[in-house]
Every structure is written in structure tokens, then in C-alpha cells.
Design a protein around this nucleic acid. Sequence first.
DNA 1: TTAATAATAGACCGGTTGTTATAATTAAGG
DNA 2: CCTTAATTATAACAACCGGTCTATTATTAA
Lengths: 190, 190
Amino acid sequence: MLNKNKSKDVLIKVASRLFRIRGYDGVGLNDIIEESGIPKGSLYHYFPKGKEQLAIEAINHTKEDVTSQIQEIFNRFADPTEAFQSHILELAENFMGNFDPLGMPIGTIAGEKYSTSEPIRIACQSAFESWQAVYITKLLASGYSEKQSKDLSIVINAMVEGGILLSLTTKTVKPLQVIAEQIPLFLLKK
Amino acid sequence: MLNKNKSKDVLIKVASRLFRIRGYDGVGLNDIIEESGIPKGSLYHYFPKGKEQLAIEAINHTKEDVTSQIQEIFNRFADPTEAFQSHILELAENFMGNFDPLGMPIGTIAGEKYSTSEPIRIACQSAFESWQAVYITKLLASGYSEKQSKDLSIVINAMVEGGILLSLTTKTVKPLQVIAEQIPLFLLKK
DNA sequence: TTAATAATAGACCGGTTGTTATAATTAAGG
DNA sequence: CCTTAATTATAACAACCGGTCTATTATTAA
């Protein structure tokens, strides 16, 4: 059961990485074929409905990946301010040094396809909800009310998505760093 | 001098609208041709460097458009909290009713092309800077320090971009509304 | 061992992409 | 009116797109 569906997993991983960097329409199936070394016949064997199906599975993969990444950081910091700051600064680290960025996890593909592919739109929505759910749990555990927790998680989610976009566009870590610094503005008064 | 370059202007307007909704790679020149009714020969007459040049001029058009839109609202509200809230709620109005959204002003195209077209990346960066400049002026006039004004303008810019993305993805005004509600958290203490 | 199924491999399809070249038309100025 | 340039109109271009198809090889079940 170990190496089962290895090709499928490789396709999903390569696809999710490329989609993050160049978006849905910016990545051709041939790019995914070439980078993964897996032939087109296999792609359509595992994803008979084609590119859209592969994209949805790639989005779900990114969703789980980021969700557990946030969860892991939150487990290390009881204080919500520290937790969110560490979360955002870790994102910022993706843009340090040689600057080989991972792209927007979901944002670009969401912005591209929200109006032309309902299944993709829903997959992106589900990813955002998953991340916000981790935020909400943390805030509830820190004594915030249900409404406060939900509202703040939306605001922080928006800030993070926008911050990644600004960092990518300016080729600078500064936007994400500044956002991390301003986190206490929200979370001071319990 | 009135109808001079009318075709060029139409191309820019149609292009910027389509790029906002479907991104760069999601819009073909044929789409722009068809919607504007202007032939391909004219397009390459006015934009001899092709699609990328048209996109850059479309981005600059959107940049000026949104900049003056923000400026106009800010002129009506002296209080920065009111000003920013009105700004964000006006964006939210684009998503009410029949939901015929204008898409992300720049975000999608920035997320798509930051790694594959340096001219487009720079044009997007310039747009973000232009909007932040309006924010900074307002905050400085309200008594915030230079550093506070710059930092807050980055945070708010990120929140707005992320908020639009979340509203588009969820097909709901709620994210932008919640963000508008939480603006006082940032701007309370002068 | 055999039969059935899964997976790989890649040539191939029609359609569309952005771009170029060139011809026809229109507008402007003397 | 004539000339010249600006603009519009087609047509063709190679390159690439997502997707289909058939053949072949591995793997599994009987």
C-alpha cells in the first residue's frame, strides 16, 4: 500500500506548486507533464475529467498542507499574539534570501477562476474556511467571543492573503513583516 | 482632439475590465477584440508590443481609476476611520444585489505574472504604491507619525486586497463588511 | 499460467493563442 | 484633387492548448 498511486501524488504536488506560482491559466498540462516526468496518458488515467479535476485536487492538497502548517505553529504558542505573529513571519521567511517564493497558496487561482469555474471557486472557499477554522479555535481558546473570533479570523485571513500578494509584488518581505508587527493592535484587549 | 485615439481608449477600458475579472492569461486578445468591436489590426497599431503592453496600460488605467476613487471618498470624510470605512464599504457595494463584480483591481494579475513578467510586476507595484500614498496622506493629516502612517497603509492595503479576494471567493459581502467594522481597532489611538 | 485490469507511453486531433504581414480604406493637408 | 500618412481590415503564421486515442507494458486475480 505504500507506493500506490505514487504518480498521482507526484502530479498533485507538482501541479499545486506550479499553480501557486503562475495561476491556473498560466500553467499548461504540458508544463506539469514535463516537470513531473509523468506522461499525459497517466494524467488522464488518474484525472479523467482533466485539468479542472487536477486543479481541484491540487487546491485541496494545498489546503491541507497549509492548514497543518498553521496548526503546528499554533501548537507551539499558547498566546494568540505570538501564534499569529509566528505564523505570518514564517510566511515571510519564504521570501527571504534567494527569494524562491512559493507563490500565493490559493489566492491567485481564486482570483482567476471565481467567475468561470464554480467547482474551483468552491474548493478555494473551502481552503479559506479551513484556515479560518484554525484561527477561530485559537481565538476561542484565548477567551474571545464567538463573534469576535469569527470576525477576527476573517480580518487576519484577508491580511495574510493581501500581505503575501504585496510581498510577492514588491519582492520584499516588508509587507508581511509590518503586518506581523501590527497584530497586537487587534489582540490586545480580551 | 476629442475623438483622437478613441479606439485606443476603448481597448484599454475593455482590457482592464476583462483582466480584472479573469486575469491576464484568462483573457485572450480575441476576447478583447470581440467585446470592443475594434479589429486586431488596430490593436497592434496602437500597441505594437502586443498583449503585455496593452496589459500595462490597462493596469495604469485601473491604477488611476481606483486612486481617484479613493481620493474622492477621502475628500468627503475628515475623520480617517470614517474615510477608510466608507472606502471599504463602497468596495463592498460592488458585490451587492445582482452581483456583477468588477473583480480584483490589480491583485489577480499581480499574482499571476509577478514571476514571469517584470514590466507587469512593476506596473502592479506602482498601483499599490499609488493607493498607499493616498492612505499615507490621510493618516499624516490625522496626526499619525510618518512610520505609523506608512505601516498602517500597508496593513490596510493588504486587508483591502485580501477582503476583495475573500468576498469574490465566497460570493458574499461579509468579508469586506467585517473588515470595515474592524477598522477602528487600528485607528483609535492617535 | 492465464485472464483481466491498471498504468504507462506518446502520437495525434481540432481549436485557439499571440503575432506578423500585407492589402484596403479612411482622413488630413496643401 | 492629389499625396501621404493613419487606421482598419483580412489572412496567414507557428506555437501551443486541453483532450483523445491506441498501443504497450506491469500488475494483480483467478
